[in-house]
């Protein structure tokens, strides 16, 4: 319980730090400090409203309090270019990002766990000798380049998949769920999800392999050997099940990581998610939107780190955080 409290406090602290760093970055920016919320193309009335809402005419510390207050009530300002509340724009993109990330991560995990266990089983053979360097090579490949190759082969070359976006133009659906389950959406999802999966599979794979190697030396595996069980049965029933624990808890960690990492994947495939929103907002100096997108991505990242830590402690009684520190 003490650990839970401390861990929650830490997450809150990190969120506060991110928010504060952002606040300072936007205020200390060279040029007009109002540029973070107001640009010339807004009408006189809009500018006036923004000034009051964000207290931009007050001293810095008062601005800071107002800023925190606005954040707590979900008020992120208006996008410069889309002229809509930032919150609404973010919420429209968020599901797309989540679907892409969860799909990519799931593929990565299924592949990583199976291949990782297999490589651990084949320890010392030529398969391991080739497999591990091969995995390292996929980790060294820039995601966006892998995405470009997939696009060149399967989209432009063979024409099997669309070149970008999440839905064909003109497609209309009654609900979000119906959209996600449509064949058109899945066809758009395939290449970006594969790219993301290829980028993410290294972590679960190497983790699975090393925990498998540890587990294979434990008493209950030796016991199973002595009982004369088949090697296959030992690997699947006894070793793999126990090795899965840290790998499963790293899933949440991977989700957070992927939310940051799929910025480039979303850009390559013009996937209408948070990452692409962030890139677009930054390159067009749409500060309120950029700030909002970064905050949301950071929020997911921090929460997922928290979930990973808690899950690890909850699932493995051997881990005691109160003793380590």
């Amino acid at each position: 319980m003490a650990f839970l409290g401390r861990r929650l406090l830490h997450s809150l602290f990190v969120l506060w730090a991110v928010v504060t760093i952002l606040f300072l970055m936007f205020r200390l920016m060279p040029g007009n400090p109002l540029a973070a919320y107001i640009n010339e193309t807004m009408t006189e009335d809009q500018q006036e409203a923004m000034l009051r809402q964000f207290g931009l005419d007050r001293p810095l510390w008062e601005q800071y309090l107002i800023y925190i207050g606005n954040l707590l009530s979900g008020e992120l300002g208006l996008s410069f270019h889309q002229r809509k509340p930032v919150w609404d724009i973010l919420m429209a993109a968020f599901p797309n990002s989540i679907v892409l990330t969860v799909t990519g991560l799931s593929l990565a995990y299924v592949f990583g766990v199976v291949v990782g266990a297999f490589l651990a089983w084949k320890r010392g053979t030529w398969i391991e000798g080739i497999g591990v360097p091969l995995v390292l090579t996929t980790r060294a490949a820039p995601e966006f380049w892998v995405g470009m190759l997939l696009l060149a082969v399967f989209s432009f070359g063979l024409g099997w998949f669309p070149a970008g976006g999440a839905n064909s133009a003109g497609a209309f659906y009654d609900s979000e769920l119906e959209r996600f389950l449509s064949l058109d959406f899945l066809r758009h999802l395939t290449l970006p999800a594969l790219t993301l999966a290829l980028y993410l599979q290294g972590l679960p794979l190497l983790l699975m392999r090393s925990t498998m190697l540890e587990v294979m030396h434990e008493d209950f595996v030796t016991m199973a050997r002595m009982k004369g069980l088949s090697e296959w049965r030992i690997v699947i029933r006894h070793a793999a099940r126990n090795a899965l624990l840290p790998v499963v808890t790293a899933f949440a960690l991977g989700l957070g990581l992927a939310m940051g990492g799929n910025v480039v994947v979303e850009t390559v495939f013009s996937w209408p998610g948070l990452g692409r929103l962030l890139v677009g907002a930054v390159s067009s100096s749409d500060y309120p939107l950029a700030q909002g997108a970064f905050l949301l991505i950071s929020g997911v990242f921090v929460v997922m780190n928290l979930v990973a830590d808690l899950a690890y402690t909850a699932l493995d009684p051997r881990v005691s955080h109160d003793r380590v520190k």
């Binding site: 991110v18 939310m259 940051g260 990492g261 962030l278 930054v282 500060y287 997108a293 970064f294 991505i297």
Partner: peptide, 22 residues
């Protein structure tokens, strides 16, 4: 170490992108 923990809890690439905006 608290500062280190905090730095590790910030999403990497998005941070680089926001930094280049300034």
């Amino acid at each position: 170490m608290r500062v280190a923990d905090t730095a590790l809890s910030i999403p990497f690439l998005p941070f680089v992108i926001v930094l280049t905006a300034f």
